[in-house]
Design a protein around this nucleic acid. Structure first.
Lengths: 222, 222
DNA sequence: CACCAAGCGGAGATGCGATCTCCGCTTAAG
DNA sequence: CTTAAGCGGAGATCGCATCTCCGCTTGGTG
């Protein structure tokens, strides 16, 4: 966690004056509250909500973060770094295919745990620029994992790096709908997709999650 | 209330009710405009928009359709019947696997062509009841197609009927994001998923659509 | 053709919910 | 103790969708 976002970001303060202790404390509270609410309810939560959750007045929230964008940036830098670390770990895995599987699983889990992250990175609605910048930082490591699995003859050759985020997008759609009923259902479909991604296979891989039963299904789809 | 929609199971049968000629004409215009706007821009379009598109006053729209629900029902009955017909055609296909593939393709195309249909049937946001009722009418035929493909030893056994709509949901997510750039991209991922669904396969099936190039990718994901 | 109720248009009333400001009060810091 | 930084949160403002109301138009009938 960084202290002040950056030195050259505020229009109202040429010299960077340190915040008063209580002010800095409140600032952190707001970020923490935003993190939690973004994760649980998405990027559309109101600043009023975040402020209330943080236990500060609305005015305080608006004083520190002129707009919602600043707040989102402050919150998601950490999540982005985590994703990058995951890709590098995947690349370090001894087996290329298993590394790819790990990457799908770990990334999918991050997205499953954080609705705001899904929106920021996978959905177009909230800020094109941030998503583009984030993906630019992620692409190299992800591409390397994919290429390595192809060179090992384990991943089909007609897959490209751009397929990775689109597959995550598909899984995110499942997560989004089943989150309250079967939060790990996305793993079922990931297994299916992985069986499609494998270059050769004679038997289906056991699915990672059972199908929804009637009740779960109704709750998920309605 | 005693209009035609209430007891009408058939959209084509006006059960004797005096509606002045110009009124009936306007009613049809509103339905046509709604169909087009729902398909293109989703179920959230305002009734004002629909009225303007239909070339009638807002008052006229509200006079015929007390609420948006009535209008949606009037518009989607036809689409639903088409989906049911598709499932029955799939069941009539001589090869069970090919029948299933056809069902995925044809249904996916309907969804790709109609954003409103995706929202009404796949997303929870707009009216649980309609979606549930629609799925109830669809399930029997879809289940039959799936079961038949499994009995023929072509579809893996651990798939269940509830997987069908969830796979369509995933494809719908791709469609939603790529619609302006590569409207058929969803077929790429359908091929992948089908390769995962097949019971046995030694070689990957050629993908139905090329991966996005850099420009297309940027436009899709941002 | 004459008549009139059915129908029409669309401005605007209503409601809702988010954003952001303002100012009197509180408190950290020197 | 002094004082300016900071606080809270009511409420002003804005935007936007829903739905109504009423004076005018028109189809259908005798």
């Amino acid at each position: 966690m960084s202290r002040r976002t950056s030195s050259a970001a505020h229009p109202e303060s040429p010299p960077v004056r340190p915040l008063r202790a209580d002010a800095e404390r409140n600032r952190q509270r707001v970020i923490a509250a935003a993190q939690e609410l973004f994760a649980r309810r998405g990027l559309d939560v109101t600043l009023d909500d975040i402020a209330r959750h943080a236990g500060v007045g609305v005015g305080t929230a608006y004083r520190r973060f002129a707009n919602r964008e600043e707040l989102i940036d402050a919150v998601f830098e950490g999540a982005l770094q985590h994703l990058i670390a995951l890709a590098e770990q995947a690349l370090a895995h001894e087996d290329p295919w298993e590394g790819l599987v790990q990457l799908f699983l770990a990334t999918g889990q991050d997205f499953a745990d954080d609705r705001g992250l899904r929106q920021a990175l996978l959905e177009s609605t909230h800020g094109k620029d941030r998503a583009a910048a984030a993906r630019e930082r992620l692409t190299p490591a992800v591409s390397a994992v994919i290429t390595r699995a192809q060179q090992a003859g384990q991943l089909r050759d007609d897959i490209e790096p751009s397929d990775f985020p689109l597959i995550q997008l598909m899984l995110g759609a499942v997560t989004q709908h089943s989150r309250n009923v079967a939060p790990e259902l996305w793993k079922r479909y990931l297994t299916l997709i992985l069986d499609g991604l494998r270059r050769d296979r004679d038997h289906p891989t056991p699915l990672a999650h059972p199908a929804l039963d009637q009740d779960e299904f109704d709750q998920t789809m309605t």
